[in-house]
Design a protein around this nucleic acid. Sequence first.
DNA 1: GACTTGTTGCAAAAAATTCGCATTTACTGT
DNA 2: ACAGTAAATGCGAATTTTTTGCAACAAGTC
Lengths: 126, 126
Amino acid sequence: MDKLLTQAGLKCTKQRLDVLNILNTANKPLTAEEIHAEVSDIALSTVYRILDKLLEKNIVIKTTIPKSDGVYYELTANEHKHFAICLACHKLKYIDICPIHNTTVSDFTVTGHKLELYGYCKECIK
Amino acid sequence: MDKLLTQAGLKCTKQRLDVLNILNTANKPLTAEEIHAEVSDIALSTVYRILDKLLEKNIVIKTTIPKSDGVYYELTANEHKHFAICLACHKLKYIDICPIHNTTVSDFTVTGHKLELYGYCKECIK
DNA sequence: GACTTGTTGCAAAAAATTCGCATTTACTGT
DNA sequence: ACAGTAAATGCGAATTTTTTGCAACAAGTC
């Protein structure tokens, strides 16, 4: 986990490792508040500053979740960036398929992507 | 444009049409502030309330833009939801290809999606 | 171990979003 | 067209979220 930091030229502090670990084990996007709530002894402003750095280095990405307030963060490295959101019950369902493989765009080198599907889950479709 | 509102069971007010038109002509995601700046005589709180309703009815979606602050809104109806973001210069490039056609997920009925590609544009790759 | 620079904590400031309430407006059925 | 009804708006204030300044602290380097 600390390789992410050192490779990006960031100092490897306890606080940063905590944030990374929480994002990693959560396996879903979290808000700054949620991250702060999980680590007992870290200032909220520090969480924001850490997230800023991680965004800058493309270690995390920001996202929003339909029908949920606020901004969420998740690890770029996690292959859990793909989910389907039920527009009725608002539950997230992680999907493992990825239809984006080897997508090419002219005049652009693709290094990553984010995909969200909207629709209705089995329960709500009734 | 007003069909979107009446079909969703929303009253068709001047303010709502203004917001929809701005989102439609902008052809890119806008923040609440940006929308407010474009319509001279509408309260900012009203912009937020309108956006809430439009989200609720799935007429707009929320999104974030890497390296930009805040929450952005864009029309679901617009087929401009797909863009590539350069991680170096942070420019958006709209893409017209859609690799998601007819994607199916088990136990889920897909009605829409959002796709963002990350990478480097021609200029920055050098 | 001392040095240098980047990081953190805290409290305060700024920005973004929501809320309460009086007034106005859009739709419905005459 | 007209009155009635429920919903939408404007305004300011309250709340929530995010950023900032600065002194103390900790990580990486020699």
